[in-house]
Amino acid sequence: MRILIIMLALFLLPAWADEPHKEYTSAEPFLPHVSGDDHLTGTYRYWKDPKNLDMRLAGSPDQSWKLNWKHLDYPFNKEMHAGHLALDRGLTLFNKLNRSGTFKNCLVMYRFNGPYETSLRGLRTHYPAFRTDLGRVVGLEEVIEHCAKLEGEVLQNGSYDNSAVSIYVASHSLGMPIKIDVSSGPLRESWRRGERLFHQKVGRNNMSCASCHVGRIGQSLRATVVTSPYGDVAHYPVYRDRFGITSLQVRFAQCSLDLGFNALKPGSQAYNDLEVFLTALTNGYPVSVPSERP
């Protein structure tokens, strides 16, 4: 009898242990494809074809959110902006790093379903991916940092030069749809963790990403109009008028400060998981760099 009680106590111990009180916004069903936006905002039909955006919606301050800000991308927006300068800088840096050809080999050495690739074409569409040499799921910027380190250069994740190389690499995948597979393996684990983080309430305001970016899309916070989480990753790293060249994980750091908690370092596991989650929500949408956002 005593043994039974002890065993019962051991079994129940995790429930007694002082679990941190975490709150979650009620979970929404997210699809790992950009067409899932139809269930969330119903605006996917307006922006699914970047070549034929509705001029009238783009011109109206009240309606332009329905284009998910895709009217700021090429080919609708043919303006010159600082993203193009970063693209040039990326080309220079890439040629400098890749003098012996090992930098490019390091970048393309990844596993995905299909033939072994040796060109940069389509590389952007397969990241984040599980890298066997690093032993975890990493985004493209982190791989660039890793490969530059092997060449003896410092290109920190999120820095201007890192994002410039990332834009240059992504420019080889222009118009190719993002395509990561989150149905199995480490990426599935990462997707699930990212989905959880997206709904977890944190920080000074006790809000989650989902507090605003699920049920309130198209409404305004002062002058800021809330966007859909679907289809966003296709234009990163992006030139932002206020912050300069911003990689996705630097954007996460800015989001963290807006929510009211200390920013994590780009490349941390939480940000990588969120990147996998958001990239999966962009599956099927064509890459568009360099791009600009306000």
Binding site: E153, Q156, N157, G158, S159, Y160
Partner: peptide, 29 residues
């Protein structure tokens, strides 16, 4: 509390002091 700052033509991501202290609040870490 620090905010990220992207400096043009630099391989380092700079961090500058943020104007409000958030260190007491739970993060996504």
């Amino acid at each position: 509390t620090l905010a990220p700052k992207v400096v043009v033509d630099s391989g380092q991501l700079h961090w500058v002091p943020h104007f409000i202290d958030f260190s007491q609040w739970p993060t996504l870490c």
